[in-house]
Design a protein around this nucleic acid. Structure first.
Length: 507
RNA sequence: GGGCGCGUAGCUCAAUGGUAGAGCAGUGGCCUUUUAAGCCAUUGGUUGAGGGUUCGAGCCCCUCCGCGCUCACCA
């Protein structure tokens, strides 16, 4: 397919030709940089404070974000990873030929390098007086942004790229013109770093387990299927790490965690992307109860590391993660919210009938657990704005969790909610191999084999458990959603660098 | 998958069914401390794609593509 250039791009291609005809390489191999933009400004301020006469000589590099030619002089701003700094080009300093070169052939978006002396302009802005400059990389396509304005020291961008489709399809352009987008991903990295530090300091071992799996499991989700050609074997992209991580407990690794990608072949929404990042950890001799306190401690640690605060704003709410978080049983929460005591309805049929009496609409053919889960999502989750642990879940939607003693319908499990979203999910892990096998078979009966959430029986997992698995508590949390909370973004696409979009048809 | 909305210049946006426009960017010119610099001139469009109605369609109708919101779905 022949690439078609716009008139703006053709103008810049002609500039490349002109540069080359003058013996100037528009994409030189190397740059020499002595200071970042902010470091150069700092160096000048330091020299000023010391009232030294020593001139601050620097070589800076960055992307041209503003040019203001005024005849015999021209002001420009370049932006680098640290910030932005003004450049002053003067014909007296450079000569007419170099001045013309800059004004005629350099464009917004080009990467350039400039050397000279730092000084302060009449308006007080610390600026590089340019003695030498060169092109580092010519931009052919103009950046999708208008010029910047500086108001009281703050950069105000006009006509900034806002079309979500372009922003996500051409995330590089979004990042290039929207600095706050870059900040989201710095925050995201800081969150992951804080989680690792927290777990590493507590004796956890970070591990990696298979992404390509012969049997998927550990969650109720439809998998992506792929194929190994040479082995002639279908494989699944993992939907969770759970079953592999717990195998490691059998092997004597008592505290393990993994941060990585899960893949679920389901609909996309503001809080669902087909691939997303998950943290899971498993702790021998822990249980769901101790995991609640551990979760509170971990989230507080992350917030303090990343935000320097336990309080943040999300979607117009001030959220405070200071422990203890609200704790309420799923049963009690549903009594409060919809007036149904699930303990009174031991079967799916009776619960569905009760829901109809309360003018709710039970999904046809759903199991008791799925009905409860449905009410949870509709009537509980959106209202859990402040951090809340919901605990004691129905057994039939939790096939890997251990029974609550004395209550055969309920398992020791909790989910943590913040900002009206499920953030994490944890339970006391089932470690009885015979019961685990029975649970898988139970699932097999209740969910038809056509059901997308049908759980395949992982015999090797049973085999592992039969060697003896220490009692343990497991935990899973969506990193994307935690990032949404800490950056006050309300769509998962904002916190994923390259979110999934439908392919565009070539024409 | 259903419903609602959106798609116009590189970006942000206008345009009762009646000649497709503005700001910024671009191009040419003036301009030696500006900062969305300013001033003068000027280029730029298959209005997402295709079909239909009409004397005439960016606008009305149909199909398709993409995006958003929402519902369904989602341990």
């Amino acid at each position: 397919m022949e690439k078609e250039f716009t008139s703006l791009e053709r103008a810049r291609l002609e500039k490349i030709q002109r540069l080359r005809s003058q013996g100037i390489e528009p994409y030189p191999t190397r740059a020499q940089v002595t200071h970042s933009s902010t470091a150069a400004i700092q160096a000048y301020e330091d020299a000023e404070a010391a009232s030294s006469d020593g001139k601050v000589e620097v070589t800076l590099a960055g992307r041209l974000r503003a040019i203001r030619p005024m005849g015999k002089i021209a002001f420009a701003h370049i932006e680098d990873g640290a910030g932005r700094v003004q450049l002053l080009f003067r014909v007296n300093e450079l000569g007419q030929e170099k001045m013309d070169l800059f004004v005629r052939e350099f464009d917004l978006g080009d990467f350039i390098q400039a050397s000279g002396t730092m000084f302060r302009t009449r308006t007080g802005e610390i600026t590089l007086q340019v003695k030498e400059f060169q092109m580092l990389a010519k931009a052919i396509t103009p950046l999708p942004a208008a010029k910047d304005e500086v108001v009281d020291g703050d950069v105000v961008r006009h006509a900034l790229l806002s079309d979500p489709e372009t922003r996500f399809r051409q995330r590089y352009a979004d990042l290039a013109v929207n600095p706050e987008v870059r900040q989201i991903f710095r925050t995201r990295a800081a969150i992951v770093r804080a989680l690792r530090q927290f777990l590493d300091e507590r004796g956890f071992l970070e591990v990696e387990t298979p992404i390509l799996q012969p049997i998927y499991g550990g969650a109720a989700a439809r998998p992506f299927i792929t194929h190994h050609n040479q082995l002639k074997q279908d494989l699944y992209l993992r939907i969770s790490f759970e079953l592999y991580l717990k195998r490691l407990l059998v092997g004597g690794l008592e505290r393990v965690y993994e941060i990585g990608r899960d893949f679920r072949n389901e609909g996309v929404s503001f809080k669902h992307n087909p691939e997303f990042t998950q943290l899971e950890f498993y702790t021998a001799y822990a249980d769901f109860e101790s995991n609640m306190a551990f979760t509170e401690e971990m989230i507080v640690f992350v917030c303090e590391q990343v935000l320097g605060s336990r309080v943040f704003n999300f979607n117009g709410h001030e959220i405070d993660v200071t422990p203890p978080w609200k704790r309420i049983s799923l049963r009690q929460a549903l009594i409060d919210a919809v007036g149904i005591d699930i303990a009174d309805y031991p079967t799916g049929e009776s619960l569905a009938e009760a829901m109809r009496l309360h003018d709710l609409h039970p999904a046809a053919g759903a199991t008791r657990g799925k009905l409860i889960d449905g009410m949870l999502g509709d009537y509980l989750e959106p209202n859990f704005i402040q951090p809340t642990f919901l605990y004691d879940y129905p057994r039939d939607i939790s096939p890997l969790a251990k029974n609550k003693p004395g209550d055969p319908q309920t398992v020791e499990r909790f989910e943590g909610f913040v900002g009206g979203m499920e953030l994490c999910n944890a339970f006391t892990e089932l470690n009885d191999p015979l019961e685990q096998e029975a649970r898988f078979e139970e699932m097999g009966r209740e969910y038809s084999s056509e059901d997308e959430e049908h759980h395949p029986l992982d015999e090797d997992y049973i085999q592992a458990m039969s060697y003896g698995m220490p009692p343990n508590g497991g935990f899973g949390m969506g990193i994307d959603r935690l990032t949404m909370l800490l950056t006050d973004k309300h769509s998962i696409r904002e916190v994923i660098l390259f979110p999934h979009l439908r392919s565009r048809e070539e024409d």
